[in-house]
């Protein structure tokens, strides 16, 4: 706590930009299927990052407000 997770912002933004570029490359190469898969993988990776953060938030709120 007391730390702003700036690294997470840059991670997610980097993944987003990286995947858009790779997507354009794959579409130019005519591999639509792989581009679709790449999009899915990117979403899942970012979702895992955010899920971790969400678990962090829930545990700390449960500790602070002594919920169940």
């Amino acid at each position: 706590m007391h730390v702003l997770r700036v690294d997470l912002l840059f991670q997610i933004a980097g993944i987003g930009i990286f995947i858009s570029v790779l997507n354009i490359v794959l579409k130019q190469a005519g591999k639509e299927e792989q581009a679709q898969m790449l999009t899915l993988v990117g979403v899942v990776i970012v979702l895992l990052l955010i899920l971790q953060l969400l678990g962090d938030l829930f545990t700390s709120i449960r500790a602070i407000f002594n919920l169940y």
Partner: peptide
Amino acid sequence: LIRQSRPELAQLLSIGVGLAIVIYVLGY
């Protein structure tokens, strides 16, 4: 920047930024 090409990742990024800010404030 991301919303133009990847709207779903932009949505996730906005959720993550919100979470980061709330977790930061939670200490105080």
